[in-house]
Design a protein around this nucleic acid. Structure first.
Lengths: 334, 334
DNA sequence: TACGTTTCCGAAAACCTTTTAGTTCTCGGG
DNA sequence: CCCGAGAACTAAAAGGTTTTCGGAAACGTA
């Protein structure tokens, strides 16, 4: 909390050289005698000199800073993506500016302007769901990469989890366990995530020549709905031997209600969730088998491709990132 | 993704004035004729001019940017604080640079240097627990405010939840319901949060002239421990009529195990959690009465006090922010 | 007309660093 | 001793904005 910031000028004076030489010495450039370099470095250390990134950025046009614009309230899905991105960037010397638009388009524009006036080198937009969202790339003179929620412009660079594949993987696991009467309880139909997962289920069942047990039950992403659905389903389709749930919350509710109704999990009914939200999936009893969307990897990948785009090597299109299955007790072999 | 950035020079030329006049017009300064100002504004709008924050910051020494340094992996507690801070800043024109040190002191130093070289105007440090953490303020030429985890230097500005008060509030609620045999199940003893909450319990009981039922049960912050503790406690102290749990996870486990052992909640045993982690507290059955630490408010307050400190009005000391009780079904009246 | 006052505008400095294009130094060879 | 080449160094410009200060224009008064 003190005095004037120390500049390269101070370092140069202390070392008894010009600022040009000091700059070269500090940046490891040629054309400076070893002994001189040493003197400059010593002076810089003594004054604990920190080059002013603003001045440097003004000159080079590169701030080594990227913006991260989230539309949800950095919720369940934004966090891991953010962490992955921060991770990828942090490895170099990048800094991340975080903006949360709270789902408000006006605020988003505002944040976008703020980021641009600070001359970020690129922007990652994190969606609140996997539903496509309006592109911002046209208004923006730097590369943009979309993570989790893709842009509605196919020319943009987007990374989304492969929900169809993830769901198919889950159902194939159930089939491999010998389950044949498989039901599906999931979230609201207007979520692309819910529709994609239902589609994955359909594909896997069809490939196995198997019928779905009952209709897909659309509801909400809540534990409450999982419980409610369990009650209805066990009444309507008593022969069900497996349930693929659209989220861990739904699955947790389902498991609880099923057990209360005297059905053992996984004995009578195997249950699979989605998200691998560990506070739920590892703490329910039995612990949930679930699909992990590798969100942190997704974030890291998005960041790496933002780097590439900043480097002129853009990779347009919607890239689907594979999910993986985390097998726990709720689908243990009989 | 196009051409050279437009500068104030372009605006000035288009408006047919000097850059000095353009600057004054754009910044609402005096000494510029109304008609001229209009011309400049029109030119700026036409070119969609964005002033270069780097140049501005270089000159003014103010970047209108703050750093947010978290030590945990932006975990359970960092998020709300971050949101609150972003909220407080976003109202003005502040931007937030996010750095996650992953609990590593080296990385923290690294991030700190990165923030300082970018000339942030201030820094918020978010702790991973309420245990005091090493101060960084000496090495830093800008104001620092600590949120959630206080600095170990009492001259620094820290904001922490008032866990003692929160716990007392919870216990008073139990007492008001007529419960007298109150037990305590909590997390590891090396967490100050756990110790503070136990202390709040002691104070409230003492004020009511009431004995604690059994010893405080130290364990971990997990649902598993809650279940385990419930089994032990119901065996050892069958007369218990209320349990104050050190976290919602512990409480959720406790409730589950108690119900399985045939004790009704809240009929036989009232249960209170801590944290108001909504995914747990609203979804367990019965829904948990719990202590909410107002973390988002805490973050916002920290941000506001950082503003004050940047303005030369620092407020040294460890400020304890009040918690509030969220009453749900797990302590409903008999 | 001369002069003083306002009002408005523009030239230039300042912020800090990097890079370019010299300039000086050193030293070996003639 | 001088020259030339290469190494080591420096002055200055550039990057975009704000601010200060001086100057010009416009206008009113004597």
């Amino acid at each position: 909390m003190a005095g004037r910031r120390v500049t390269i000028n101070d370092v140069a004076s202390l070392a008894g050289v010009s600022i040009a030489t000091a700059s070269k010495a500090l940046n490891g450039r040629q054309d400076v005698r070893a002994s001189t370099r040493e003197r400059v470095l010593a002076a810089a250390a003594e004054l604990s000199f920190q080059p002013n990134a603003l001045a440097r950025g003004l000159l080079s046009g590169q701030t080594r800073t990227v913006g991260l614009l989230t539309s949800d309230s950095v919720g369940r899905f934004g966090i891991p993506v953010l962490l992955g991105a921060e991770d990828a960037f942090g490895a170099g010397e990048m800094a991340v500016m975080l903006c949360d638009a709270r789902g408000d388009a006006i605020r988003e524009q505002h944040h976008l302007r703020a980021l641009l006036s600070r001359r970020v080198d690129g922007i990652i937009v994190v969606g609140e769901s996997t539903n496509p969202r309006p592109s911002v790339s046209k208004d923006v003179p730097v590369p943009v990469v979309y993570a989790y929620g893709p842009s509605d412009d196919p020319e943009d660079v987007s990374f989304v989890p492969d929900d169809v594949g993830g769901a198919a993987m889950a159902v194939e696991h159930l089939l491999a366990l010998g389950r044949r009467r498989i039901a599906h309880v999931t979230g609201p139909r207007h979520y692309k995530a819910a529709r994609d997962r239902a589609e994955g289920l359909r594909i896997a069942l069809e490939a196995a020549g198997c019928e779905q047990a009952g209709e897909t039950m659309w509801g909400s992403w809540s534990q409450r709905w999982g419980r409610h659905a369990a009650e209805m389903l066990l009444m309507a389709e008593p022969g069900v031997d497996a349930v693929f749930c659209g989220s861990d919350q739904v699955a947790a509710g389902f498991v609880e209600a099923a057990r209360e109704r005297g059905r053992s999990v996984p004995g009578d009914i195997a249950v699979i969730g989605y998200d691998n939200w560990e506070v739920l999936s590892t703490e329910t009893r039995p612990a949930l088998t679930t699909v992990d969307m590798n969100l942190e990897l997704l974030g890291r990948t998005a960041a790496q491709h933002l780097f590439a785009a900043m480097d002129g090597r853009a990779t347009p299109g919607v890239h689907r990132m594979p999910c993986h299955l985390v097998i726990r007790d709720s689908t243990a072999a009989a």
